[in-house]
Write a protein that binds this DNA or RNA. Structure first.
Length: 707
DNA sequence: ATAGGGTTAG
């Protein structure tokens, strides 16, 4: 197509007066419209130049400037612009507003703020009329780079030059203030507008959505409709995003309906954001339905669906969709890789993770620091510390940032290697890398996992010295650390000292500590706070009922269960995964879908008997249902992590460590049992749960029984 | 002859 056009063009340049002038103009217009490469553009340029169209028809000049800038050749754009006004009739002549605006647009679109502002100042100095077309470009530059201070100056100039009530300029002002985070100023401009249209309404809705105030965004959406505006595709995208933030499944359905009824759903971007919205509301099934029905899909569609599966704890679905993606027309990009790497991290599959890493390398996609860090994190979470450390050491200078250090520190942390984490922490400071808030979360939790209380206290004290203000998550780490170590009262005192209202993570850490140490009274205090703060969070109900069950308070267990039921909450399904060669085997609790299930069930029963012979007593408090003790024992045997370990014992060679990943925290009966199994069979058992790694060997666990 | 609002990861 492109070749054909340029041949036609070549022919045309050497033919004279074949076509009448209007048709010629039309023809060039068409050529420019289809032009997608610099080579073709240069051909069209020289042809237009030969015909003298550039001197007399600013229309073409403008189009060339814009196209050059779009194709990344700003230099040629500027040369054209300069050439036009310097050599006209042999002496310098100021360019007109139209051409200046065009050049300004080229700079603004290319993100060249300083050149744009230079030109804007030049226009003012040379007396080139600044008009209503000029401001949107200038304001765009303020929004993207220069900031509100400069934006305010331009705002003043807008008012002084009398464009203060131009709809387009006002919308650009709203957007500028919004992007600079000046919500109040944006709202003020918006409120003063006499005429409003869809665009500025949408700008306001987007503003609140971006500021993570979804309710306010939705309120504005309703107000917009009340004033008779229907909205369009872009409005739908912003609204979908706001509902996604809210996580409200019912609203999601009505936004979907809104998009369908108004015919917006055919738009790929709208489809993408509806997919993302459903996924964020936890409704992956509907997300997939929308995805499957999309007429057209792009890379973002696939990424949205993939991350939807990952966010909802369904990494295996993400992996199979990823295979479908590779068979489609859309190529995986670095964002895809990032999503898939995190799916592998979640799954804890070393084999799949490595395969993905190789895929990333062989596809020659750009591996930036973010992706590299995610891959290192994946290796850490899959239990392959060596590869992660090797990647870290092989980083070139520019390829390593704070997050790289953080990944390593928190990785050592979840493996219980507190000393190594502390060493890295001081090494990064020696090397002049400034720790950030996440560094402190990582180091504090590393201290917590390793039971290094004094070191943890010292790090917490150091935070203020390094001018990192303790945030809620840091308090949560401290409560976790003190609580695990049994200093429950000190933890509770710390909570009371927090300057603002303690968050759910803080109370959650205390609740967990109460479960470990069997403290019902403090546990109830924590739980009552949690049920108010996060009434929908299933994990807290489960923890509290664990505490009650451990002290045989079955009436209370039942109460918590009823409370959950009345809220429509279900205990999330436990799921454990084990790798066997290149296969990945997943087990649910009491799973009978595995082809090996009969063998595995026999094995867990016989394991129980073997363990009992050397002193194992089932910990029945791990079963929340108030059933007969024998039934409880059976239920315990069928826990997903036990099934996976039993499978490993049966199928894997003696020398191989058995590595299992569980999505939730490992139950304390399983934890106890794995100690016995590791010693009876003389095998290494590695379990990664939702919280950390447990390395079982010779009857002991690396976590020191605090987890 | 020229313009303003947008989705995916962490």
């Amino acid at each position: 197509m492109e070749g054909l056009k340029s041949r036609a063009l070549h022919h045309l340049s050497h033919t004279h007066k074949v076509l009448a002038l209007p048709s010629l103009h039309h023809f060039y217009d068409h050529l420019l419209q289809c032009c997608t490469s610099l080579t073709t553009l240069k051909l069209i340029h020289s042809s237009l130049s030969t015909r003298g169209f550039l001197l007399h028809t600013p229309h073409f000049l403008a189009r060339l400037i814009i196209l050059y800038s779009k194709l990344g050749d700003l230099h040629s754009a500027r040369t054209l612009f300069d050439h036009r006004h310097h050599h006209h009739h042999g002496h310098t002549q100021a360019p007109n507003s139209f051409l200046c605006n065009t050049m300004l647009r080229a700079y603004a679109n290319a993100g060249r703020s300083y050149e744009a502002i230079d030109l804007y100042i030049y226009m003012q100095r040379m007396g080139v009329g600044v008009n209503n077309f000029t401001y949107p470009f200038v304001l765009k530059v303020c929004a993207s780079e220069l900031g509100a201070v400069f934006g305010e100056v331009v705002h003043g100039q807008v008012v002084r030059t009398g464009f203060g009530s131009d709809l387009f300029v006002e919308a650009a002002l709203v957007d500028m203030y919004a992007k600079c985070g000046e919500i109040g100023d944006a709202h003020e401009v918006f409120d003063r507008m006499l005429i409003r249209d869809v665009v500025c309404w949408t700008a306001m809705i987007t503003l609140y959505e971006q500021a993570e105030r979804p309710l306010k965004a939705l309120m504005l959406f309703r107000k917009m409709q009340e004033e008779g505006f229907l909205g369009d595709e872009i409005t739908a995208i912003s609204v979908a995003s706001a509902v996604g933030q809210l996580g409200d499944g019912r609203m999601a359905i009505s936004v979907h309906g809104y998009a369908v009824l108004n015919g917006f759903i055919g738009d790929v971007s709208v489809g993408n954001s509806i997919v993302g919205m459903y996924a964020k509301c936890g409704n992956v099934e509907r997300a997939r339905l929308v995805f499957d029905r999309m007429e057209e899909r792009n890379g973002i569609s696939w990424n949205s669906m993939l991350s939807g599966y990952t966010q909802n704890g369904r990494p295996t679905d993400a992996l199979s969709l990823f295979n479908q993606m590779q068979a489609s027309e859309c190529d995986p990009n670095p964002v895809t890789a990032l999503i898939m790497v995190s799916a592998c991290s979640y799954l804890g599959s070393k084999h799949l993770g490595r395969k993905l890493h190789n895929f990333v390398i062989s596809s020659k996609m750009d591996i930036d620091t973010t992706l590299r860090n995610a891959i290192m994190d994946m290796y850490m979470k899959c239990g392959d510390l060596d590869t992660a450390v090797e990647m870290f050491n092989n980083c070139e200078l520019g390829e390593r940032d704070v997050s790289s250090w953080n990944v390593l520190i928190s990785g050592y942390g979840v493996h219980g290697h507190g000393k190594e984490a502390l060493e890295l922490f001081s090494r990064m400071q020696v090397e002049g890398v400034e720790p950030n808030d996440i560094t402190f979360t990582s180091i504090l939790s590393a201290c917590s996992h390793a039971g290094l209380i004094d070191e943890g206290r010292k790090c917490f004290a150091d935070m203020t010295k390094l001018s990192v203000r303790p945030e809620m998550k840091h308090y949560a780490c401290m409560v976790d650390m003190l609580g695990r170590a049994g200093f429950l009262n000190e933890a509770f005192r710390l909570i009371k000292k927090i300057p603002s209202r303690p968050s759910d993570e803080v109370w959650g850490a205390l609740l967990l500590a109460c479960r470990i140490h069997g403290n019902t009274e403090l546990g109830e205090i924590a739980a009552n706070n949690l049920f108010q703060l996060e009434p929908e969070h299933t994990g807290y109900y489960v923890l509290m009922s664990n505490i009650y069950a451990a002290s045989n308070k079955w009436k209370e267990v039942e109460m918590v269960r009823q409370n959950m039921k009345s809220r429509g909450l279900k205990k999330p399904a436990a799921f454990s995964v084990i790798e066997f060669g290149t296969e990945v085997h997943g087990f649910h609790t009491a799973d009978q879908s595995s082809p090996y299930y009969r063998e595995v069930y026999r094995k867990v029963e016989s394991l129980a008997i073997e363990m009992k012979m050397v002193g194992y007593v089932p910990d029945l408090s791990c079963v929340l249902h108030d059933v007969e003790p024998e039934d409880k024992e059976h239920l315990l045997n069928y826990h997903s992590e036990k099934l996976a370990v039993a499978f490993g014992i049966m199928k894997m060679d003696q020398g191989m460590p058995i590595q299992v990943t569980k999505n939730l925290r490992v139950c304390s009966d399983c934890h106890w049992a794995f100690k016995f199994i590791s010693s009876i069979y003389g095998r290494k058992i590695i379990v990664r749960d939702g919280n950390r790694f447990h390395h079982f060997q010779g009857g002991r666990c690396s976590c020191g029984d605090y987890w």
